[in-house]
């Protein structure tokens, strides 16, 4: 009986080897492993065998059954592989053809810069706020210690609005700096205050590669008990570190702005020459980035904040200059000409 089983197995496996499709394989399964197959018959009739024969025949039959089943599984896999290879060989594309394009829009480099700058200050607790572009003389100048005959007005040539002046707030103008928002915040909010104020500003100036009648600034303000110039330095230093990168030298020097005292100017090591001196930095190795200082006591008083109790710092920075430095853009007009060949680069 056992030799019959061995013979059966050899025959079956030989036959299995020659099979090339699923249909033949099914026939083979029915033939050798099906209910009516010889092997199943033998397994069923084990009970009718003599006791001493029952065990060895049973063991051999079950072993052979497992071997045939394994053989069948292997064959299935092999056939599946052959089939998939055939199918995928047919499905051939040119992967070097371009993909189906998704629409790609972009934000304006000025918007991106404002977002980036605001995000840095946001993370230090400064909230974004805003004010009007068309402003009263009072908020743009008077409230900031810049009276009518102040020489600082000469460097901020003003575009005036052709509407009769208000007797308290003066002539309407296009704000020359976003510091006008600082004046409004000081007047309308109570300490603690931490805000940044991005926006458009205007100057009465002829257009050239470094001047446009409209550009962008961001001002910032922090007022509370015990705010010091050390905090001002720390905050601005942190900004410079995050915007311009670790390791870029930062310098704070004395400067004058009527609404702060002491006044500060912050410069960074030139991005082109790294401080050695070149044309961009006028051979100084430094590039002025922003003006700042401790808010002048008279400015606080005008906003009904007691300078004996509270102190604070303010800063103001040109936005347009930042992407110009970062990308080496040499003409500020490019931002406002809106040529898509320029804008699509950012």
């Amino acid at each position: 009986m056992i030799s019959r089983l061995e013979q059966l197995k050899l025959g079956a496996l030989k036959e299995l080897d020659l099979i090339t499709d699923a249909k033949e394989m099914e026939l083979w399964r029915v033939n050798y492993l099906g209910k009516k197959s010889e092997l199943t018959g033998i397994l069923r009739s084990l009970s009718s065998l003599a006791v001493e024969e029952r065990k060895p025949v049973g063991t051999a039959a079950n072993r052979i059954r497992t071997e045939l089943e394994n053989g069948l599984d292997q064959k299935k896999c092999a056939l599946r592989e052959i089939q998939l290879t055939a199918v995928t060989r047919e499905e051939d594309i040119d992967v070097t053809l371009p993909g189906r394009p998704l629409p790609t829009g972009r934000l304006h480099p000025i918007t991106k810069t404002i977002n980036e700058v605001c995000e840095i200050y946001n993370s230090m607790g400064f909230q974004v706020t805003s004010g009007p572009d068309v402003e009263w003389n009072y908020y743009n100048f008077e409230a900031l210690n810049i009276h009518d005959d102040h020489p600082a007005r000469d460097v901020m040539s003003t575009s005036w609005v052709d509407i009769e002046a208000d007797k308290d707030r003066g002539q309407m103008l296009l704000r020359t700096h976003t510091t006008s928002v600082t004046a409004r915040v000081i007047e309308s909010q109570n300490p603690p205050i931490r805000v940044v104020e991005p926006g458009r500003v205007y100057r009465y100036e002829a257009t050239d590669a470094t001047h446009t009648p409209m550009f962008h600034q961001i001002d910032g303000l922090a007022i509370d008990k015990g705010i010091t110039m050390a905090d001002l330095k720390g905050t601005l230093y942190e900004f410079a570190r995050r915007f311009f990168g670790e390791g870029r030298g930062v310098r704070f020097r004395c400067d004058y702005f009527p609404f702060v005292e002491p006044g500060v100017e912050m410069a960074i090591e030139c991005l082109v020459c790294n401080g050695r001196g070149c044309r961009l930095c006028g051979n100084t190795g430094w590039i002025e980035i922003l003006g700042a200082g401790m808010v002048h006591p008279r400015v606080l008083e005008r906003g009904n904040i007691d300078p004996e109790t509270y102190s604070g710092f303010a800063f103001g920075m040109g936005i347009d200059r930042l992407p110009m430095l970062r990308y080496g853009i040499d003409d500020i007009r490019l931002f406002y000409n809106n040529d898509l060949r320029f804008l699509s680069q950012f």
Binding site: M124, G125, V128, P192, R194, A230
Partner: peptide, 19 residues
Amino acid sequence: YDKIPTTLLGTTLPSQSPE
């Protein structure tokens, strides 16, 4: 100015009410 230390704001964070 370089003798003035560099510190980060340690004062109360104003209540956050973004515009």
